[in-house]
Design a protein around this nucleic acid. Structure first.
Lengths: 224, 224
DNA sequence: CTGTGTATACTTGTATACAAGTTTGCTATC
DNA sequence: GATAGCAAACTTGTATACAAGTATACACAG
């Protein structure tokens, strides 16, 4: 039974906590697609009232992980195909963001990205998959943020928790597969960083395409 | 004081109704950006309890129209720039969908789109802006649906109510500007239809680009 | 055995109550 | 007059209660 990192729940309400826990269980398959969950049932499981559960279910519904119906919420789950679709959307968002910031002076962003990669190496040294996945996530989120496009940022927000949770699961898997795999993940981020440093729209576009094409391949190896 | 069409609220809960009403008021500027609204205040305005209002505010927060904070929700509003950003996102989603269905046999979709255009002409004849805006919306939604991409469909869902509401407002404006303007809107949809009929990825991509480039121009004329 | 109708248990949507925390504004003191 | 401190009024988050609607299971009639 996997636990959602408590450190990621700082200051979260019960409703948010429940959403994170359920999200993790749905994505990692503990709660299977097709299952029907009711507010009362979840509330009993977590030992809380329906109010925060209701919040959580609405959140998960907005993320597309469940579908709210008259009698109970139907779990839609997250198959391998769904993760691939998630990568399609990430590509849409992240390539848009990168194209948008390509020509600009992003010294601050680049410094942050370099720092993040350094911390990744440290996390590898400490065999800390949890921190690593968060850093991986932060790397991509920093780029999206830099685009300063409210609506696209919002698109990102609507999938960010799913992305983070998928990364948590896949990173644990990658860590168990030996250092070579992990280092290649870091290297891919360095490649993105170098591309951004060129400020060349064409180079950046090409690198982002390759990043997601490659991620799709390794996805099949590591997910489920 | 504009009213959200009651016909669009069939079977909606109070919570959804409140969300639609508030959304409309925020987008048309009745509720201004920067304003702070509290659950109690809104509940009193609508003569309901906090429960459905809470639902509505969470919905609007998920749509990026307000930001939930400790003490009250801050209205983010929808400026001209925000509508432009909305079109950016629509372009991302709709061009993705159209590219995806480009090569396939879409006889059923095309028939539906033709039918929708016919109904548009009827709505013009009856000077029915409300119906027209809904048809316009349905045209684009049908295309997104046809792509059969759950995650992208979900992206669309997260903006669909905003898109519909913006269309309602702009269509009323367009209708007031005379028949020529309206007919040009219909013509733009016919152009998309013809492009889809060619099944040529290049042609379709070009037409979609032009559609949104043009929409952006006419947007400045009609919005606010 | 099959089909129908009803009672029951369970579901959500909404209303209300309470607790904990934040803001605001007044008062008292310097 | 200015400032510190306190009290009151607001806020959300959570718990609970109730109503209306839905599915289910069982009994009964054919």
């Amino acid at each position: 039974m996997r636990q959602y990192p408590k450190a990621w729940l700082q200051g979260a309400s019960f409703g948010e906590s429940i959403a994170c826990q359920l999200r993790l269980q749905i994505i990692d398959g503990t709660i299977k697609a097709g299952e029907v969950i009711s507010e009362n049932k979840v509330a009993a499981d977590f030992g809380m009232s329906r109010s925060p559960v209701r919040d959580a279910l609405k959140t998960l519904s907005n993320e597309g992980l469940i579908r709210l119906e008259r009698m109970g919420a139907i779990v839609l789950g997250m198959s391998l195909g769904d993760v691939e679709e998630l990568y399609d959307v990430r590509y849409l968002i992240e390539s848009f963001a990168q194209q948008r910031i390509a020509g600009e002076d992003n010294a601050k962003l680049l410094a942050l990205l370099r720092q993040t990669i350094d911390k990744m190496e440290l996390a590898v040294k400490h065999q800390d998959a949890e921190t690593f996945s968060y850093l991986d996530f932060s790397f991509h989120e920093a780029i999206v943020k830099e685009a300063k496009h409210r609506r696209v940022q919002h698109l990102w927000n609507s999938i960010r928790q799913i992305v983070l949770t998928v990364m948590l699961i896949t990173t644990e898997e990658v860590f168990s597969e030996g250092e070579a795999r992990i280092l290649s993940v870091i290297d891919k981020h360095r490649t993105i960083l170098r591309a951004l440093e060129t400020r060349d729209v064409g180079v950046i576009g090409q690198v982002v395409r390759e990043y997601f094409a490659d991620s799709r391949v390794t996805l099949h190896i590591s997910f489920q």
